[in-house]
Computed example of a mutant assay.
Amino acid sequence: MGHADRVGEFRGLAGSYWSLRPVCGGTEWEAEPEHLRAADPAERMHAETARCNARSRGEVL
């Protein structure tokens, strides 16, 4: 499964890869830095809203 549509938070380095965690919580994944870009404001807001909604449903802490 690809992660092209995910907004992730940088968690650390894993060799030459970056470890990322979905903003809404979930399983971390690794990606090559050259395949990543900063989320634009709309993408970030969508991810943060999804996280707040999941939190209100008790799905994430």
Rank of each mutant, 00 (worst) to 15 (best):
residue 1 M to T: 07
residue 1 M to Y: 13
residue 2 G to D: 12
residue 3 H to N: 09
residue 3 H to L: 05
residue 3 H to A: 06
residue 4 A to S: 09
residue 4 A to M: 07
residue 4 A to F: 06
residue 4 A to V: 05
residue 5 D to P: 00
residue 5 D to I: 07
residue 5 D to A: 15
residue 6 R to L: 03
residue 7 V to W: 09
residue 7 V to T: 08
residue 7 V to D: 04
residue 8 G to S: 03
residue 8 G to F: 01
residue 9 E to R: 15
residue 9 E to S: 15
residue 9 E to H: 15
residue 10 F to D: 03
residue 10 F to Y: 15
residue 10 F to E: 03
residue 10 F to V: 07
residue 10 F to A: 10
residue 10 F to T: 07
residue 11 R to K: 15
residue 11 R to C: 11
residue 11 R to Y: 07
residue 11 R to L: 13
residue 12 G to P: 01
residue 13 L to Q: 04
residue 13 L to V: 00
residue 13 L to Y: 12
residue 13 L to P: 02
residue 14 A to T: 03
residue 14 A to H: 08
residue 14 A to Q: 06
residue 14 A to R: 07
residue 15 G to K: 06
residue 15 G to T: 01
residue 16 S to I: 03
residue 16 S to T: 02
residue 17 Y to C: 02
residue 17 Y to H: 15
residue 17 Y to V: 03
residue 18 W to K: 03
residue 18 W to I: 00
residue 18 W to P: 05
residue 19 S to E: 12
residue 19 S to W: 12
residue 19 S to A: 13
residue 19 S to I: 13
residue 19 S to K: 15
residue 20 L to W: 00
residue 20 L to Y: 07
residue 21 R to I: 08
residue 21 R to N: 03
residue 22 P to Q: 11
residue 22 P to N: 12
residue 22 P to V: 04
residue 23 V to E: 00
residue 23 V to I: 14
residue 24 C to E: 13
residue 24 C to I: 09
residue 25 G to K: 11
residue 25 G to Q: 06
residue 25 G to P: 06
residue 25 G to A: 10
residue 26 G to D: 05
residue 26 G to M: 01
residue 26 G to V: 04
residue 26 G to Y: 00
residue 27 T to Q: 03
residue 28 E to K: 04
residue 28 E to L: 01
residue 30 E to K: 08
residue 30 E to M: 08
residue 31 A to H: 02
residue 31 A to D: 02
residue 31 A to M: 00
residue 31 A to T: 00
residue 32 E to R: 15
residue 33 P to G: 09
residue 33 P to A: 10
residue 34 E to D: 00
residue 34 E to V: 02
residue 35 H to W: 04
residue 35 H to V: 04
residue 35 H to E: 00
residue 35 H to N: 03
residue 36 L to F: 02
residue 36 L to P: 01
residue 37 R to W: 06
residue 39 A to W: 05
residue 39 A to C: 07
residue 39 A to V: 07
residue 41 P to E: 12
residue 41 P to H: 09
residue 41 P to G: 10
residue 41 P to D: 08
residue 41 P to C: 12
residue 41 P to T: 11
residue 42 A to E: 08
residue 42 A to S: 08
residue 43 E to R: 10
residue 43 E to T: 04
residue 43 E to D: 01
residue 44 R to G: 07
residue 44 R to F: 13
residue 45 M to N: 11
residue 46 H to P: 01
residue 46 H to D: 12
residue 48 E to K: 13
residue 48 E to M: 13
residue 48 E to S: 08
residue 48 E to F: 08
residue 49 T to C: 11
residue 49 T to V: 14
residue 50 A to I: 06
residue 50 A to R: 15
residue 50 A to V: 11
residue 50 A to S: 13
residue 51 R to K: 14
residue 51 R to V: 00
residue 52 C to Q: 14
residue 53 N to Q: 14
residue 54 A to P: 01
residue 54 A to E: 04
residue 54 A to D: 05
residue 55 R to W: 08
residue 57 R to C: 02
residue 59 E to L: 14
residue 60 V to Y: 10
residue 60 V to P: 03
residue 60 V to W: 10
residue 61 L to Y: 08
residue 61 L to S: 13
residue 61 L to C: 08
residue 61 L to A: 14
residue 61 L to Q: 08
residue 61 L to F: 09
residue 61 L to G: 06
